[in-house]
């Protein structure tokens, strides 16, 4: 009985849906505020994202008549389920994730791709030209960043010698953070570059380039479905940041300062916020690339960094 209750608590409240969406939306607000200041604007208040999503939730639910309505309607929900599940598999409060089933890095990589695939399905099924172009671009982008993303993870796996994220975090607790290992620095850079592509941030916001294809795959979405997409996107940001934090920054660590026990989740929030801010800064100092340039960049420079890191881990003792 307790197990069932705790499963529901984990998936719906902490660290599942409620926690992840609240923090994800907050990070999006911080991202917008920092962007505003970097662009010499005041920017929206930090809680703007809650207001936006709340307003979208209250709007009329429209499915375009040209859309394949089943796929179109279900895609955001599947994506939400996938990113929330990743949240359960990440170490949030301690090295031990909320869902202690046998799940390793491969499951996380797989689940992290589901939102991307849902976005493509949503775009293709929306029945609009911008959705199709956006989805087509996202397919190309997926094949560009995913290779680098996986290769960077493999470098970490080769270093730690385990496919288990708990083991990776535990390893770092004993031997120091992997970011301090010079051999893994190229992998970290490659990871952040591919996260930029995964999260569709400048210079890789190609699939949703506003001035070119309106909003890409999401052009036809509106109202509650768009709100769910926003939540998915913001949770994905948090999840990718948390994933990088677990791989390279030692995951959540509980500290004791002056007799006070500071829970690991505070550490998790600080580390993820730093990673989110790095991606925010990157997205504000560059122009958007073309899709062919992005593909070339990933398969040459970023892939080179990841392979270099893997070779160093394997060759240098």
């Amino acid at each position: 009985m307790m197990e069932v209750l705790s499963f529901f608590f984990n998936s719906l409240v902490f660290p599942g849906l409620l926690f992840a969406s609240l923090i994800g939306l907050l990070y999006a607000g911080i991202d917008r505020k920092v962007t505003g200041h970097m662009q010499h604007r005041i920017g929206p208040p930090i809680w703007q994202e809650y207001l936006d999503v709340g307003k979208l939730m209250g709007k009329e639910d429209i499915t375009p008549s040209a859309a394949q309505s089943l796929v179109f309607n279900v895609a955001p929900l599947i994506a939400l389920g996938a990113v929330t599940t990743v949240m359960l598999l990440l170490p949030v409060n301690s090295a031990q994730p909320a869902l202690t089933a046998v799940a390793d890095l491969i499951v996380i990589i797989y689940l992290l791709n589901i939102p991307a695939i849902c976005l493509m399905l949503g775009g293709y099924s929306s029945g609009g030209p911008f959705g199709s172009v956006g989805a087509a671009r996202y397919v190309v982008q997926l094949f560009s960043y995913e290779f680098v993303f996986i290769l960077a993870i493999i470098a970490v796996i080769a270093r730690v010698g385990s496919l288990d994220l708990t083991a990776v975090v535990g390893y770092q607790a004993q031997r120091g953070w992997l970011i301090l290992d010079l051999r893994l620095i190229p992998a970290l850079i490659a990871m952040i570059i591919s996260a930029q592509g995964k999260l569709m941030r400048v210079p890789f916001d190609i699939p949703e380039a506003e001035t070119e294809i309106v909003h890409g795959a999401l052009t036809e979405y509106s109202g509650p479905k768009l709100a769910i997409w926003r939540i998915v996107y913001n949770i994905e940001t948090l999840v990718v940041a948390g994933f990088i934090a677990a791989l390279f920054l030692g995951g959540p660590v509980a500290y004791t300062i002056g007799g006070f026990q500071i829970p690991g989740v505070a550490d998790f929030l600080i580390k993820t916020l730093i990673i989110v801010l790095i991606t925010t800064i990157l997205r504000n100092i560059m122009a958007r690339l073309r899709i062919d340039q992005a593909l070339k960049f990933y398969w040459t420079f970023a892939a080179f960094l990841a392979v270099l890191s893997l070779m160093l881990v394997l060759v240098v003792p």
């Binding site: 962007t35 970097m38 662009q39 010499h40 604007r41 400048v202 210079p203 916001d205 380039a209 506003e210 001035t211 504000n284 100092i285 560059m286 122009a287 958007r288």
Partner: peptide, 16 residues
């Protein structure tokens, strides 16, 4: 032009 190529920071600074 900066906005068209997705460089919103330059857009805002140029207009400032």
């Amino acid at each position: 032009a900066a906005h068209q190529i997705g460089f919103n920071t330059l857009f805002m600074l140029a207009w400032r």
